[in-house]
Write a protein that binds this DNA or RNA. Structure first.
Length: 564
RNA sequence: GAGCUCGUAGCUCAGUAGGUAGAGCAACGCCCUUUUAAGGCGUGGGUCCUGGGUUCGAGCCCCAGCGAGCUCACCA
């Protein structure tokens, strides 16, 4: 404890805090002199604050006076108001508040001396009887006061709470008891997890846990984190997805499995990405992607109803009805959201012909801006990413920034294709993301994906260039991804080999070869459909949180200070 | 990784035209036995994110760095 007060300690931010800490320590000594331990180890409460509110929240002053209800309650002091030889304080417990009234002639000299030594943030226990004040507030008329623990640091400003976003994330423990809205998000998050489990448990799915440390990080296109096992002298990767293990379990005879756990992807952070995030994945034998579309619609509506009591959620000022879904193929979605007033969309046949697709996009580029720009052309030919000057210039030229974005994206796609750096399939997927994704505010299922970007999905029987896969979107971002699982070991081996070729071309997120997974398939995977849902994003949607960091208790932050 | 914005007391925020820093809450002392963003009187509290530069003089202007938010990129 003495270490705390040394200068240079990381605990204190200032001289103010250090002196406050010392002051609180001397108050603790005073409290001990009153016969109360500084750090007692229990308090026998008769009710929690929420229980008191639930039971007597509506009781009238007369009823309380007649029955003289006695309670013992513990909580943290969130407001304290002296009143000479009496005083009020507000206790908070489990996110709810209850006022207490302490007066000298009711508690006696000793307990009143204790009351005077209390500070904001302290934990206390009280016993007494319920009554209503003149203004009608339910209050405990305290008869005995028990000290429980001291706050040695100053609480944030009581009216605004902790407002600094950075501090809220870094010191979530303060955020949670000062901003009850923040607390509510995480209570709701727990309810969402519970509802998800209920949904799958009721349908005969088995909850399982598969390795987070993997030797071959597979099941998604992402860069992994690396780690090392000392005793085995083995490099390992934190998983980017549980997918390949869950399908091994289906091979093993668990027809319906689900896992809710963390994935780790070594990528940037944004309002929709945190390097570690929670993923729900589930697999169902004897089903295909159409079955999962229906299941997904039921699941999302069910969870919303369980958690919010309604399927309507408000996100970014827009009302989203999670019971009303639209289904579009990827190709339909590109054409639907294409700015047709400016240029013709890609023709249907161009989706199957690389050269025709390039020609279509070239034509569109020329219509969007017929002015020849040397730098632009050079850039298109090179298939390079835009530099900042270029982007800024584009924004000046185009009044409509969406069009400017579209032009850049088209140029990038055309450039990459002409340079032979990208397949037709991934160009189409890229075009979809550029043109359509931001418009998918209301619940939408996008199905039929290019085979080239779906190394683990089963092809459409009548068209091997496309797979039985869908993603679903709400609020303008992707929530989940599902497909009929590829269960032909020969085809799977071929796809992995193609991914290896992509890797050789410089795509370090292309899938790696997993021989054991192919072997598992060789034992026979029944026809199976599987799906992954980003739980954090689902929580965002159902709590109206615009940033993923608002639904993750301790989001990743850069270190605040240089560590010695 | 890029652009924009922000960083002032423990917290929430002002800070004019470049003239050496303020309020409320919190803290400390006193008064107050039904208050509730209690109130009244008084007191203390600052590396103005860090380091340079311009200037007679910088919280303010310039450069670099650190941290954060948003947007984009990466990425589902």
């Amino acid at each position: 404890m003495t270490q705390f007060t040394h200068k240079g300690s990381t605990v204190f931010d200032s001289e103010f805090e250090r002196s406050l800490f010392d002051l609180r320590k001397s108050k603790l000594e005073e409290i001990e002199k009153l016969g109360q331990p500084a750090y007692p180890n229990q308090f026998p409460a008769s009710h929690t604050v929420p229980e008191v509110r639930a039971k007597w929240g509506e009781a009238t002053a007369e009823a309380l006076e007649a029955s003289r209800v006695t309670v013992a309650v513990a909580g943290r002091i969130m407001a304290i108001r002296g009143q000479g030889k009496a005083g009020f304080a507000t206790l908070q417990q489990n996110g709810e508040r209850l006022q207490i009234y302490v007066r000298l002639d009711a508690v006696g000299e000793q307990d009143f001396a204790l009351y005077k030594l209390l500070d904001l943030g302290d934990h206390i226990g009280v016993s007494g009887y319920l009554f209503r004040t003149r203004t009608g507030e339910l209050t405990i008329h305290v008869e005995r006061l028990t000290f429980l623990a001291k706050a040695m640091l100053a609480l944030p400003e009581k009216f605004h709470g902790l407002a600094d976003v950075e501090l809220r994330y870094r010191q979530r423990y303060v955020d949670l008891f000062t901003n009850l809205d923040a607390r509510e998000v995480f209570v709701k998050r727990a309810k969402i997890l519970k509802a998800l489990r209920q949904f799958f448990d009721e349908r005969g799915y088995l909850e399982v846990e598969t390795p987070m440390m993997q030797q071959i990080p597979g099941g998604a296109a992402a860069r992994p984190f690396t780690t090392h096992h000392n005793a085995l002298d083995l490099d390992l990767f934190l998983r980017i997805a549980p997918e390949l293990y869950l399908k091994r379990l289906v091979v093993g005879g668990f027809d319906r499995v689900y896992e809710i756990n963390r994935n780790f992807r070594n990528e940037g952070v944004s309002t929709q990405h945190n390097p570690e995030f929670t993923m729900l994945e589930f697999y169902q034998a004897y089903a295909n992607y159409h079955d999962l579309m229906t299941l997904t619609e039921e699941l999302i509506a069910f969870v919303a109803q369980e958690v919010n009591g309604t399927t309507i959620t408000n996100f970014g000022g827009v009302e989203i009805d999670l019971s009303k879904w639209t289904r579009l193929t990827m190709r339909e979605a590109i054409i639907k959201f294409w700015p047709a007033q400016v240029a013709d969309p890609p023709s249907w046949t161009s989706f199957a012909d690389r050269q025709e697709f390039i020609t279509c996009l070239r034509n569109a580029l020329n219509k969007i801006n017929p002015i020849v720009d040397e730098r632009f052309e050079e850039w298109v030919r090179g298939g390079q990413k835009p530099d900042k000057d270029f982007r800024v210039t584009e924004h000046v030229i185009f009044e409509d920034s969406d069009l400017a974005e579209l032009r850049i994206a088209l140029a990038f796609i055309v450039g990459m294709m002409e340079a032979g750096k990208v397949t037709l399939g991934s160009a189409i997927a890229h075009l979809f993301e550029t043109v359509s994704e931001r418009h998918l505010i209301q619940p939408t299922i996008i199905y039929e994906f290019p085979t080239a970007v779906s190394p683990l999905s089963k092809q459409k029987p009548d068209d091997p260039e496309w797979v039985e896969r869908f993603e679903f979107f709400c609020g303008g971002f992707e929530l989940g991804n599902a497909f009929s699982e590829l269960n032909d070991p020969v085809e799977q081996h071929k796809r992995f080999a193609q991914q290896l070729a992509e890797r050789d071309r410089g795509d370090d997120e292309a899938h790696q070869m997993d021989e054991d997974y192919v072997r598992a398939l060789a034992y026979g995977l029944p026809p199976t459909a599987g799906e992954g849902i980003g739980v954090d994003r689902l929580v965002m949607l159902l709590t109206g949180s615009k940033s993923i960091r608002d639904v993750i208790l301790f989001p990743l932050m850069r270190p605040e200070k240089q560590l010695p």
